[in-house]
Amino acid sequence: MTTARVETRGSQQAQRGPAWLGETLGYLRRNPSMIVGGLLLLTLVLFTGLGRLIVDTNAASPLSAPPAQPPGPDVPLGSDPQGRDILSVMILGTWLTVRTGLVAGALGVAVGSAIGLYAGYVGGRRDKAITWVVDVLLTVPAILLLVMIAAVVQTELTSLGMALIIAALAWRRPARQVRSQMLVIRNAGYIEMARLSGLGPLRIIFGEIVPNLLPFLISSFVTAVSAAILAGVGLEAMGLGPQNEPTLGMTIFWIMELSAFLRGMWWWIVPPLAILVVLFVGLYLVNAGLDELANPRLRRRA
């Protein structure tokens, strides 16, 4: 299109010079939601990171504080009926919950991308078989499978075990998406050029294709992390989580189990909810900000 060429020509002039910094700043200026989301997540990281240095997280176990106390000088955020210090629970729980999300998200994206890259690159019958399996699995409601798995292994469950259970299903969507991205890129002229330049399949996938998928993979990772946290909190709230670890989801389970609402223990109810809200809003905003990077159609060049 004639007009579009004029615009890109103009912007090419402006893009020269120290590209990366200028481009990043320009990107942030166009996508302010990224900054807000980033700040929210940074607050949580500081809260749990610094908190663990300052506050004794052993107080997050039961019987370490006087039970069911409202906030006071000994227990800054109060305590729950089983004698956990809420502040310690929040500091440790945020870390455990986020770690579950990061591990499950990373595993899901890594395994899913590997499957997607393989299927998309080899094509043909193997691609058809893999895609068929992924498609069938995609129709299975995740929560159903998770409840079943979690119920079976529940007794000895740790938060890392949770992450593995969630990761067992988190790879499906990245696999499907990476495969379709792969199909688009595989037919690009530069892939043919790489083949004519004597590159083998591994070098083509990791040297030529993956770099172009990076923005997409980053965004995919953020989505997977927030989906994994959501799944984890959901399972834990049902009581299917690690019984001996004070994750945010388990806290919600105990809130419901021990009738915190009836007993008016607001200091127990508000903090985990506030942290979850900040966490999800932050992840959502960051992902919305990454959208332009991951979705070439939204990329504003002018």
Binding site: A188, Y190, A194, S197, L199, E208, P211, N212
Partner: peptide, 20 residues
């Protein structure tokens, strides 16, 4: 399309020289 947008153009020219 013949150039990988991720790399500078040198990449496309050096690749065959080095790999072949």
């Amino acid at each position: 399309a013949s150039f990988n947008p991720f790399y500078r153009v040198d990449h496309a020219l050096l690749m065959p020289l080095l790999h072949l």
